[in-house]
Design a protein around this nucleic acid. Structure first.
Lengths: 343, 343
DNA sequence: GTGAAAGCGCTAACAG
DNA sequence: CTGTTAGCGCTTTCAC
């Protein structure tokens, strides 16, 4: 079956420890010949080190845990790929926990599992849910107990090594809304994501801030509580039409595509009869017949940053205080938003 | 730091082995009280078993390796999620190797890495490349050497436990092409994926088979060699227009979207001036202003099947001969293909 | 019913 | 330069 260091030792007539050292890259006192002899038999026997054993003795592994939301969303898979690329280059593998949109399974169970997997670090790219203060408290505690560097994509206020890599969603919401207002829209629908996500609430604050700044009253009726999926975007349109909105700010592009789909069915013309602005800037945004105006989130850049920071965290020995990085939005104005002409 | 079974033993004044047994679900002779006492202190100490240690002694782990292509393609991320869902339910975690479209890194290196990770099984969802007989020979050998069940998504002809979960791409190519011919098209462009992939060649065979059946001569000029990405779809259109094609069979939906994008720029109307049929049926296919006709690949069903088979392979003890499952295509005719009216 | 001992594959300190 | 020993955290005989 799989050969071990023991097999090599037997073949070469050496001790296990000598073989171990010979195979190691660290400077040591094994003669060049022995070294070569060991290397050759290792190759011949198709030897591959058992990383479980290595990690057991080293108390660290070449594994990084990652928790992400539904990767069917291109925005998220792009992030995933960007992180993966950086880590793989440096010889790290990822143990993935991908969350289905439907079952956002218990955070605590997840952390326990991860705790078992003895990964050397963790990337927690799952949104912070603000409606569970108690669970979050425990989660924070458990995360810190892991004793490994953790990169989060929200402000978890963890007290352990790592970085918070965030995005200014509030500003994004503000800019998107302001743009619509500047176009002359006054009844602006707001299609939100899961209302308990911090990232959702921040976008909503931005929306309200813009309205306020321009003296438009906030109205609960113009807010449709979505969940970041295309389906809900589709369903929401009839509601918005009933509210006579002239523009919709969708909290992600995915839902905006759902709006497009419904608009086609209902015969609503974008942007003449309805302006739509999205959020994320997924690659598809530019493929639609009416390219989608959206708030750009530099997700690949963020993923790359996360990957690199992770490597630094893992390989630099000196302690660093927990870092923080905030990415800023910019507006990508394409064909789906237009000046509003009162009929 | 992280507590171990030893800590529990000390706390309870018991031996390590007793604690191990008490914590185990297997039937054994530990008294109910001891059992409970151990359980409670384990909880109190936030004990989580070290799976590296467990797998070392059991010679198997709750880890499954997976190799997939670029998950930014919804078709692939859907597959990934479907597999993940089944495995996670049964307590298995996935070690992911996601391949970037650009760097299809060495298979052999990948297998070696996986061999180190001591996963209990492997899902090889990466396309078989037919132009590397030598590498494939070694790959096959190395895969078999892993000594674990392997599910592939191509016919690798492996001689180890597992299943080949395939799709009849040839039939898919045939049906798509036949549909276009039946619509009256004669100059049918063919936008292929990476030409060295078996799944690409099969589609191409299907295309040629349909042409032949209807007495249309195959012409090299009508075939544009792509790579399954939107960019190449975009770029290919001007070539196809130069060839005066009236329809294009795109080997996946992604590239078809690229064609859409280019068509908009060039002012080419779909389907009046150009019919397009894709392959995969990604969710977005239905969102475009002109919904994309495509060949349906039941990828979620396939993923679920793979997950379930994997569990069966892992948990049923009796030996089973290597299985094979072939999914069949069906045509989804939407708005992007139409009867050709000679001008 | 519980404990002692051996060992999974590997590394690292300590001898020689 | 190389071998011996101990031990990472856990499971599993085999004694008691």
């Amino acid at each position: 079956m799989k050969s071990t260091i023991k097999d090599i030792a037997r073949e070469c007539g050496l001790s296990v420890s000598t073989v171990s050292m010979a195979l190691s890259d660290k400077p040591n006192r094994i003669s060049a010949q022995t070294r070569e002899r060991v290397r050759l038999t290792a190759e011949r026997l198709h030897y591959q080190p058992n990383l479980a054993a290595v990690s057991l003795v080293n108390r660290k592994s070449k594994m990084v845990g990652i928790v992400v939301n539904d990767i069917r969303n291109t925005h998220i898979s792009s992030l995933f790929m960007a992180i993966n690329k950086e880590l793989e280059e440096k010889g790290y593998s990822m143990i993935c926990h991908v969350l289905d949109n439907e079952d956002l399974s218990s955070n605590l169970k997840l952390i326990k599992l991860i705790s078992s997997e003895n990964v050397s670090a963790l990337i927690w790219a799952k949104s912070l849910e603000v409606d569970k203060p108690e669970e979050n408290f425990n989660l924070k505690y458990d995360m810190e107990q892991l004793g490994i560097p953790i990169i989060t994509m929200d402000e978890f206020k963890l007290e352990c090594a790592g970085v918070d890599v965030c995005f200014d969603y509030n500003m994004g919401g503000y800019l998107a809304t302001k743009h619509l207002i500047t176009c002359g829209h006054e009844r602006i629908g707001c299609l939100t994501g899961d209302s308990n996500f911090k990232v959702t609430q921040e976008r909503l604050s931005g929306y309200r801030r813009a309205l306020k700044e321009f003296g438009i009253e906030y109205s609960q009726e113009l807010v449709y509580s979505g969940n970041y999926t295309m389906e809900v975007g589709y369903k929401s349109l009839s509601y918005f039409l009933g509210q006579n909105v002239t523009a919709i700010f969708s909290f992600n592009d995915e839902m905006a595509f759902g709006l497009y789909q419904a608009a086609r069915i209902y015969g609503v013309h974008i942007p003449e009869e309805l302006s739509i602005i999205g959020f994320d800037n997924v690659p598809f945004a530019d493929v639609m017949e009416v390219p989608l105006s959206t708030v750009n989130v530099p997700i690949v850049e963020m993923g790359t940053y996360i990957g690199r920071e992770m490597i630094a965290l893992l390989e630099n020995t000196e302690e660093r205080p927990r870092g923080k990085k905030i990415y800023k939005p910019d507006l990508l104005l394409r064909g789906s938003t237009a000046k509003w002409k009162r009929k």
